[in-house]
Design a binder for these strands. Structure first.
Length: 136
DNA sequence: GCCAACGTTGGC
DNA sequence: GCCAACGTTGGC
C-alpha cells in the first residue's frame, strides 16, 4: 500500500484537532490539481503523515484514509475532490523538517523538493525511516 | 517580513 | 498555445 503526507497549517486545522475529533474528517480545501490527483490515487486504509507547516514544520502523527476521493463539500466546482481521514496515532517524537533535511536518506522527499505540494506521496523507505525517527 | 518557487490567469 | 503578470504558499 502507498503512503502519503498531508500538510496543514496548524492555525487552520491542527493535528490536535484531528486527534480530538475522533471521527473521520474531510480533507477539504485542496484547490491544486496535483494534490487532488494524489488523493484520487488513495485506497481505503492507506496511511499518511500529518505535517504542520509554517509555524511548527514537523510531522505530528499518522492518519488513515477512510473514504475514497469524493467531491469536496466546501467547493463550488465538483472537480475538486477530497478523501476522508481519521487520526491513527501521534508520533511519540514529532519529526522536524530540520531533522528530515539533515537525514541523507530523505533527500529525495517531496517535502524537501516541492514543499508547496499539500498532498504528497511518501515512499515505503521514507515511511519506515520517519516512523523510526519518530519513536514508533 | 522577505523572497523564491510554483500554479493560475488572461492577453495575444 | 505561449508567456508575462500576478497571487499564494511556505521556508527562512
Amino acid at each position: 500500500m502507498a503512503h502519503w503526507l498531508f500538510k496543514s497549517e496548524p492555525a487552520t486545522w491542527s493535528w490536535h484537532q484531528q486527534l480530538s475529533k475522533g471521527v473521520p474528517e474531510e480533507w477539504h480545501g485542496v484547490r491544486n490539481y496535483a494534490a487532488r490527483n494524489n488523493m484520487r490515487l488513495m485506497q481505503l486504509g492507506e496511511e499518511g503523515f500529518f505535517y504542520h507547516s509554517v509555524q511548527e514544520k514537523q510531522i505530528m502523527g499518522i492518519v488513515r484514509v477512510v473514504a475514497l476521493a469524493h467531491p469536496d463539500s466546501t467547493a463550488d466546482n465538483p472537480t475538486w475532490e477530497c478523501v476522508d481521514i481519521e487520526a491513527v496515532c501521534p508520533l511519540p517524537r514529532p519529526v522536524t523538517l530540520v531533522a528530515i533535511k539533515r537525514e541523507e536518506r530523505l533527500r529525495d522527499m517531496v517535502l524537501i523538493n516541492n514543499s508547496r505540494l499539500s498532498v504528497q506521496p511518501v515512499t515505503d523507505g521514507q515511511w519506515a525511516l520517519i516512523c523510526e525517527m519518530g519513536g514508533l
